[in-house]
Computed example of a mutant assay.
Amino acid sequence: MPESPKKPARAIAHGALLAFLVLLSRLFFEEIGTLAYIYLPHAWVDAPQGEIPPHGGLWFQSLFGIWAHWDGYWYLSIAQFGYQGRTASSAFFPLYPWLMHLLGSSIWAGLGISLVAFTVSVVVLYLWVSNQWGPAVAWMAVLVYAFFPTGFYLNAVYTEALYTALAFSTLYAAQKRRYWWAFVLAALATLTSIYGILLSLSLFVLVWKQERRFWRAVGFSIGSALGLLVYMAFLTWRFHDPLMFQSVQSDWGRHFAWPWVTLVTAFHAAWSGRQVVWNYPYLFSPGPAQGPVINFYNLIFMVGSLIVLVLYGWRLPLYLWAYLAPALAVTLFFPAYNQPLMSFPRLIFENFPILLVLAIALARRPWWRFAYWSVCLYLGALLTALFATAHWVA
Rank of each mutant, 00 (worst) to 15 (best):
A173P: 03
A174L: 10
Y195W: 11
Q175T: 12
L203N: 09
I194K: 13
L162R: 06
K176T: 15
S202P: 08
L188E: 05
A161N: 04
T190Q: 08
A161F: 04
S200F: 09
A161Y: 03
S202W: 03
A186V: 05
F168M: 15
T192E: 08
R178I: 00
S169P: 05
A187R: 08
L166H: 08
L203H: 11
L198V: 09
A189I: 00
A161G: 07
L199E: 12
A189E: 00
F204W: 13
Q175R: 14
L201F: 15
T190S: 13
A161D: 04
V205F: 13
T192L: 07
S169I: 02
L162N: 07
W180S: 14
Q175L: 14
L171D: 01
S193Q: 14
R178D: 04
A182W: 02
L203S: 11
A173L: 14
A174S: 14
T190A: 04
F168D: 01
T170V: 10
I197W: 04
A186K: 09
A173C: 12
F204V: 07
Y163G: 00
L162F: 10
W181I: 06
L199H: 04
A182L: 02
L203W: 10
Y195T: 07
S169M: 03
A165G: 11
Y163I: 01
S202I: 05
L185R: 02
T192M: 06
L201V: 09
Q175N: 12
L162T: 07
A186G: 15
A167H: 00
L201M: 14
T192W: 10
L171A: 04
G196Y: 04
V184A: 14
W180D: 11
L162I: 06
T192N: 13
A187C: 09
F183A: 07
W181V: 06
Q175P: 00
Y195F: 15
A161P: 02
I194M: 14
I194A: 14
K176Y: 00
R177A: 11
T190W: 05
F204Y: 15
T190I: 05
L166C: 07
L191K: 13
F168R: 01
F168S: 00
L166W: 06
R178F: 02
L203Y: 11
A161K: 01
A161V: 07
F204Q: 09
T164V: 15
L201Y: 12
V184Q: 02
R178T: 00
F183V: 06
A174T: 06
A161L: 10
L162Q: 08
A182C: 05
T170N: 03
F168H: 12
A182M: 03
S200I: 00
A189V: 00
F204C: 10
L201G: 13
L188W: 06
K176W: 01
L188F: 14
L201A: 15
A187D: 07
F168P: 01
A187P: 12
A186P: 10
S200T: 12
A174Q: 07
I194Q: 13
V205E: 11
G196N: 11
S193I: 00
L162E: 02
W180H: 13
V205Q: 10
R177Q: 15
F183M: 08
W181E: 10
R177L: 02
T170C: 11
Y172A: 09
A189P: 03
L171R: 02
